[in-house]
Design a binder for these strands. Structure first.
Lengths: 321, 321
DNA sequence: TTGTAAGCGTTATCAA
DNA sequence: TTGATAACGCTTACAA
């Protein structure tokens, strides 16, 4: 492997001059520039990017922490980041945690070790304190409401969104409303639970634990929901479902069981994924790809001013309410 | 930032000794080892991993080329790779190409520049020659049949799989069989087309171009398929669908249009995704997560012997044929 | 406009 | 068991 020094020798110039040519810096005579180019061609030279990184203290790598990838919430976020990464000449390093804290720590370790320039945490298990501990080592961006904390974020106010959706259903006459989430202990889900408490309290409705359906991630999880509902003595008449795949699964299963939607059960999905459009599911649009892009932009932003980027959501009325 | 030299000074030992302690090498007295540990604690020292990489000529990063991530074929492959990456202490660098050749080249450039130790190409646009050109710079692994070529791979013989599925449908009495694919120009789809030609020729059936449905990637694409079929004068009576999401979409749409499945239209999906089980779709199981793992193993395998890793598939009979 | 030389933070060789 | 010191391949003051 020929290196920059060999190149300099071949071209009869200094290493600095080669470096200037390589990086398109000014102050190189046409003559020498060409000499360098010739040498590059002859030698089939290739920069060792690690050396560049070591020298510059930067890798153009952004770490992305996700629990898993096989879920629209995460792969749509990643999709958005990918677009932005491409445009800014960065690459994404994927860190799949499966919600194991040790892997989240590993990711932060990478930041500390300077293997990545910044870290985007899409969802986490670890506590706030841990994150703060790693803050000095580089930008950490979160996809959750961090207002009041010293970490930039792009997020949806799920408390607000849920309250809005509950009210909408209430106006439509529903009094027994439940919801489906992926992971009860998540930060976002805690906000949703707060909204649920607030809503039921405001309207003097009972706070029904049974109306909360956990572990709803994919289309096929809709089956469990319908199954449980049909077994209930006093089932909910409306459901907020935090992703459209699950909503679609619910709608499909309901059909098979002759449960009328929205007659017997009203459904509001989330995300406005293509499947919601196709199946005519009323949904709350969350621009996940866009959120991914913005998360990434935070990650590479130079100015150290912390930005909390709340993303508004929008109700798309279709046929399931 | 304190570095290894500072550490050496603090501990009153040489840089070499510090390095030995850091890497758990033998030949360090307990006394000096402890001195180093103390220094590490006091200084809050953190290795700069880029320096390590430069020195070792290795990054423990594996590049993964996918056109996009929001598709089970790709996210399940990635999922498998992630598992393996974790176990072997590697990280995955995601390169989303959207089938732009320039991005594929960029990925191979990363290999040449030694930013990644190996490259896994899950699907590609570029031609074979381009890949061969980059072969000298590091391991490139493909997820397609590379037998006879000098590149390791893990793959499904889609020619064989299709032929098998066609025969199965033929035995069930079908004479008008079509299929749905994601991208007609892909290597795998070309194999499938060959199988289709072979099958129709063998059984003296007409080779119907109309029976090939392109651009079928997601659940919602099933709608188009059903739409086109209902418009046909002489529609197929059975369909091979290269992914279960699309198969599910087809089944669901058919229900809505009072098309009986399998009465009017038999369906065989691919992958055996959870949705296929839930919707009782007959499918050809392809262990994508496993394939992802094996692809990764090739990528980090030391021995230079080229391995072609054909993965067998399995018919899962359910209710759509 | 050019070049020398000092980093960047490690690992690895070799002599002691 | 230890430690100088030379790589690794690049960028960037600073001097000329």
């Amino acid at each position: 492997m020929t290196n920059i020094r060999d190149l300099a020798k071949m071209a009869g110039v200094s290493v600095t001059t080669v470096s200037r040519v390589l990086n398109n810096h000014p102050y190189v005579s046409e003559e020498k520039r060409n000499a360098v180019f010739d040498a590059i061609k002859q030698s089939n030279y290739q920069q060792n990017i690690n050396a560049v990184h070591l020298s510059m203290g930067k890798t153009f790598l952004i770490g992305v922490v996700v629990p898993f990838i096989e879920h629209p919430y995460f792969y749509l976020l990643i999709k958005g980041m990918s677009v932005e990464a491409l445009e800014n000449n960065y690459k994404l390093v994927l860190i799949q945690t499966n919600y194991m804290e040790s892997r989240e720590l590993e990711a932060m370790q990478m930041l500390k070790q300077k293997q990545i320039d910044a870290l985007i945490i899409c969802s986490r298990k670890c506590d706030w304190q841990t994150i703060e501990e790693y803050l000095p080592y580089g930008p950490i961006i979160l996809c959750e409401d961090t207002r009041g904390k010293n970490v930039p974020s792009t997020f949806v106010d799920h408390y607000k969104a849920f309250l809005f959706a509950f009210d909408y259903l209430f106006q439509k006459g529903h009094r027994k409303i439940g919801y489906c989430i992926g992971r009860r202990s998540g930060t976002n889900s805690k906000q949703r639970e707060m909204a649920f408490k607030e809503f039921t309290a405001n309207h003097h409705l009972p706070y029904e634990h049974d109306y909360i359906f956990n572990h709803c991630l994919h289309f096929e999880d809709g089956e469990q929901v319908i199954h449980r509902i049909t077994q209930m003595i006093d089932p909910p008449t409306a459901l907020l479902v935090t992703n459209d795949d699950v909503a679609a699964g619910i709608v499909m299963c309901a059909q098979n069981r002759n449960l009328s939607i929205p007659g017997d059960l009203a459904i509001i999905g989330f995300n406005n994924q293509p499947i919601a459009k196709m199946m005519n599911i009323t949904t709350i649009e969350i621009p996940l790809v866009d959120i991914g892009r913005k998360l990434f932009q935070h990650a590479i932003r130079q100015n150290s001013k912390i930005v909390y980027d709340e993303i508004p959501v929008k109700l798309i009325e279709r046929k399931t309410v």
